[in-house]
Amino acid sequence: MLPSTFDYVAPTSLDEAVQALAAGAGDAKIMAGGQSLLPMMKLRLASPATIIDLNGIAGLDTLEESDGMLRIGALVRHADLERSELIAERYPIIHDAAQRVADPLIRNRGTFCGSLAHGDPAGDWATVALTLGAELHAVGPNGAVVHSALDFQTSMFETQLGMDQILVEARIPVPKAGQGSAYLKIERKVGDYAAAAVGVMIVLDGATITEASIGLTNVGPLTIHAAAAAASLVGKSIDAAAAIEEAGRLAMEASQPSSDLRGAEEYKKDLVRVLTKRAVRKAGARAQGKEA
């Protein structure tokens, strides 16, 4: 299958890319990993007039901590996150998700930022970014813009990112003392999107949960911020089974799945409940250094 014809632009600087995108006047598309865009173009679900390829721009593959933030540049691939020692040691939720996004071949091309820009509620990274409170740094003709991962998706495949904006990097606060996190995903097979997945981040003071955040993947029209479920955990003990049960129930209430080939609505809701409980416990064990 061939995409429709398009003009191909390979800028070597971000400025050039911004100009090319503005010149494309709504009919140009940025290509990062191409692992969502090209399949859509081959199926003619997308037929942009111009493709602006980011892959020739140096400096977009930053993956490092600086000034209290983890910086994930626009060309950091899923596989870079999967293999990073920094990520394995300090960001277990990212490490978990990196091994479950798509398949190993797609992970060698697809990017973290491209996944966010794609705005797919089935995307794993949107949930991770939301759960960790990422700032999304973009640039457009009028300069730099910062979006929040909490309300980045606006509808299915739509985000806050303007048509003339390029997502340059995601910035995630470095872990606090006592922080633990986890991402649990149920998929039918490798390379499939989640039937349901849950991301959890908690901060513990002793056994007491002082902060919590929960995100849900592919169980509604948007990536879901299960704020009530997370809030219910604050002030509770990580060993309080009833509190974890309640968080699972509230996360389930926040989900809005529909029945499809990946499962019935009731099944997916129950997955959210069970995965939330397991992810909270796992994040807790990690915060206490009891589990890697």
């Binding site: 191409g34 692992q35 090209l38 493709i51 390829d53 797609i106 390379g191």
Partner: peptide, 24 residues
């Protein structure tokens, strides 16, 4: 459709699906 891996080649040493990369 980017699902089967039959078209895998190594691009700069990394295995990738050559049906989902532009020749350019």
């Amino acid at each position: 459709t980017t699902s089967c891996g039959t078209c895998t080649v190594l691009l700069d040493g990394r295995p990738v699906k050559s049906c989902t990369i532009l020749a350019v």
